[in-house]
Amino acid sequence: MQGRVSVPTPRAQRTRDDTGLDLRRVRQVFWQISQALAVFAIIGYLIWRGAVAMEYNWQWYRIEPFFYREIDGEIYWGPLVKGLIETLRLASIAGVLAILIGFVTAFARLSNSFAGRIIATWYLEAIRNTPLLVQLFLFYFVLAPIFGIDRFWAGVLCLAFFEGSFAAEIIRGGIVGVEKGQYEGADAIGLNVVDKYRFIVVPQALPLILPPLTGLIISLIKHSAIVSVIAVSELTTAGLNLIADTFMAFEVWFLVAGIYLAVTITLSIGVSLFERSLNKSKR
C-alpha cells in the first residue's frame, strides 16, 4: 500500500476476525480451557484420594430416591425436591418483604421526619451489627412466642429484616444517585411527592439498584440455609435429615450445594437478561 504500513481499520479487523480462524486466538482459548480443566482435575483427584484414604464408600447410585420415587406409575417427590420448593417459597417471600422493608427504610432515612430517620438508622445499625444466627434465635425463641408465629414465618421475617437492612442502603444509594435536576424538573411541573418518586425518581434509580439487589437476593437464598437450625423443613434441613438416615454425607452435601448453585446462577442470568432489555428500551 504505497509503502505505508497498513493498519487495519476496525471494520477490516472485524471482517478478518469473522472470516478466517485466527490460529493464535484458538490456541490461546484452548490453553486457557486446559488450565481450568487441569485445576478442576487436581481438586477432584484430591477429593477422591482423600475419600479413598478414609475408605469413604461412594454410593451415587442411591441418590435417585432423594429426588423422586415412582410407585405404581405415580411420582412422589423426594426430600430434596420438597426441600428446594420450600427454600424457594421461603426465599421468595423473604425477598419480597426484604425489598419492601428496604424501600420503606430508605425513604424513612431520606425523609424530613426526624423520628423516621432515627428509627431507620437504629434498625440498620442493630441488624447489620449483630450476627444473623443470634437474630434468628431472637426471632424464634423470643418474638415468635410473643406474636404467635410459627417457625417458617419466624425464619421468613428474620431473613427479611436482615436482608432488608442491606436492601435499604442499596435502594437509598440508587435514589441519591438520581440527578438533582430530575427532582427539580418533577417539582417544576407540580408533581406531588408520591408521583415524583413513582414516575421520575424510582424508574431512574432502578438501573442503579438492580445489579446490587440481585447480589442481595442471591445471598438471601444462600442465607436461607441458616433456618435449618430452627428446623424449618427447607433444602438444608432435608439434606441433614437424609444424612442422618443414610450416612451419605459427601453425596448429599454435594447435591445440596449443586442445587443452590443452580438456583442462584439461574437467577443471576435471568436478571442480567432483564437488565439488558431494560437498557435496550432506554437506548
Partner: peptide
C-alpha cells in the same frame, strides 16, 4: 406548594427532561 408550582412554568439551564 404543588398547587403554586402548577401555575408557574419553569425552564432550566440544563433542560431537566426525563430521560426515561
Amino acid at each position: 406548594i404543588e398547587g403554586i408550582r402548577r401555575e408557574v412554568g419553569m425552564v432550566f439551564q440544563s433542560f431537566n427532561l426525563f430521560p426515561h
